[in-house]
Design a protein around this nucleic acid. Structure first.
Lengths: 340, 340
DNA sequence: TTGTAGGCGTTATCAG
DNA sequence: CTGATAACGCCTACAA
């Protein structure tokens, strides 16, 4: 298995490497016949250019880096799915890294990506990330950067996200239109902007409908919440408010499902006694019983769009064109099922 | 942002690049003081070696490639999770590709990985893949290859998998010990070995317990089955067998959940009237109601193990040591919940 | 139309 | 202990 290089081809044909190189790239100043000969041989020997040499020479890796907080999440899987599709079409490779919601790791991973000379980077920030110097560094290196979903407002780059506030607003508004009045909210921690925005959307929908905002109906859930957190808070909710609550809007589907479990086990009928509305439309929402109304966040589309913008920016950079940063809001959608 | 290279460091210190290079690698033949000076400067200028140059020089990319059929699957996400962890520890990058269960794409992706000079490859084969010449090519190129879960028996390389047959056997045996006698099976298509093995395990458990195998209790489900397939087959099952069936073992959790939905909606009590046992222990199984007994397939461990073996083989190759292929069976585990 | 030469950044070898 | 040199494979001015 001797490696097939330009030199090998050149020797076999009695040509120089540069001629071979040009022939393969269809340079106009090469004899058609030679071109054909070269291309044929290349094909038959299965020549593939050495990516390192190319990278070294062209300062271009055809690799993009992606950092996400966690792999095992329906939403993030979908984002990746979208990114992979776009990259595939353009013959780019995707290096995937997982920050495990750890700022230090995220920072280190950025360094690795930079040192590997990736052509662009897509990041969905860890919840804990507050310091953005590593992002500034990417920009400093003049590497296109796209932030997706978990973004940093202060960083000047393209962003792909949803309108959390509006989405929440729509969901809660829907509940209100259906006649629910005492709507509880399981919110996320204070940290990632998303949960704040979702909370604000909830609150605004209440106020716009002249429903008094009752802080005691809001429960703060842990961020790495598993569904048992939803279960426990549902228990608390009923203990605290008894019959004086008729709906529950949660910051994510997992909490909703935990709550549903509690309600099911305790014979609290959904949606008759209490309606439930989730967020993110995880795969699960459609399969539990009763099926859960939720907000489709469209991870795949977010991934696709991020990648499209990234490749656009890489292209522009290549052509020395100025880059105009975009902020793309991906549409969300209310998915109404049986839980309300 | 001038790139910091060895040459830059060398110039600033009035040294040669080779000295700088050695100093950074702690060569024993370099003066301690110079080493310190070099290392300090390197740190302060944030020097990172150029990966292309290193790759070109050392014939080593520090990148491994991973091809899986589909991203958006709890099981595969877990495999990736495991691989990423191991790679992270070793400062390897992971290039991820998704074959979408498409043989041609899988083949092309292998070519891309090879041409990029990855140091090793982990693949979970597409269901449709029957021709293994692309795998042979990898081996031909002398690139370590690990097959995980969806493997090719005839390809000579290390493999990480579960004992599908035994796992099924255990599950069905458990059902039988619990007193169930008329156990239906929703099996997968004839294609990937996994579903065949799971079926065989089911059958053997019956026979070993002197329960007649009744082919009419076996339903073949589509492979890209969504849970509606489980729903519909559950309907058929009850139509066909009425009360003459008391348990259901499915080739995956999704089908089981579809079936559970049908049973719930039609007031067929689980597990009193019919028990249900799934396979794979997807995240969902624990959150639906009633919670689903299933077989833990431990994707994370499979990913970790695959990566460990891969890095071992890369290491061995590096040291010119012979490589001994391993076939690792990851333990499965019965997870008993409320559905049986 | 083809070939020569130099360099991308790193590292191993060998000479000083 | 340090430095010069060559090589990894590719690409592109420039020369022939």
């Amino acid at each position: 298995m001797p490696k097939v290089t330009l030199k090998v081809l050149a020797n076999k044909l009695g040509l120089s490497t540069s001629t071979v190189s040009k022939a393969l790239k269809d340079y106009s100043d090469i004899n058609e016949e030679t071109k054909l000969k070269v291309q044929e041989l290349a094909k038959s020997l299965n020549y593939t250019p050495n990516a390192f040499a190319q990278g070294l020479r062209n300062q271009e890796s055809k690799i993009v880096g992606v950092i996400i907080p966690s792999m095992v999440h329906y939403f993030f899987s979908n984002i990746i799915d979208g990114i992979l599709k776009e990259a595939e079409e353009r013959n780019y490779m995707v290096v995937l890294m997982q920050s495990n919601e750890d700022y230090d790791l995220e920072k280190k991973q950025v360094d690795v990506l930079l040192s590997k000379g990736v052509d662009g980077i897509i990041i969905s920030l860890a919840n804990k990330t507050r310091d953005f110097s590593h992002l500034a560094k990417i920009i400093d290196y003049n590497i296109p950067l796209i932030l997706v979903d978990k973004i940093a407002k202060t960083i000047n780059c393209s962003k792909v996200l949803i309108d959390d506030r509006k989405a929440s607003y729509d969901a809660v508004n829907y509940l209100i239109q259906k006649g629910y009045k005492r709507i509880a909210h399981f919110r996320g921690d204070l940290n990632p902007q998303n949960s704040i925005d979702r909370f604000l959307g909830y609150k605004k929908a209440l106020l716009d409908n002249n429903i008094e905002f009752d802080p005691s109906l809001v429960y703060v859930c842990d961020n790495n919440s598993d569904f048992s957190d939803g279960y426990e808070n549902a228990e608390k909710l009923i203990a605290d408010h008894g019959n004086n609550v008729d709906a529950l809007f949660t910051v994510n589907d997992l909490l909703a499902i935990g709550a549903i479990n509690y309600f099911n086990e305790n014979n609290i009928k959904i949606p008759e006694r209490i309606a439930v509305f989730g967020f993110s439309n995880w795969f699960m929402s459609s399969v539990i019983s009763p099926s859960l109304s939720s907000i489709e966040q469209n991870g795949t589309k977010m991934g696709e769009k991020s990648a499209q913008i990234l490749f656009q920016e890489i292209e522009s950079k290549h052509k020395q064109k100025p880059i105009e940063f975009q902020k793309v809001i991906i549409d969300t959608e209310l998915i109404i099922r049986k839980s309300c």
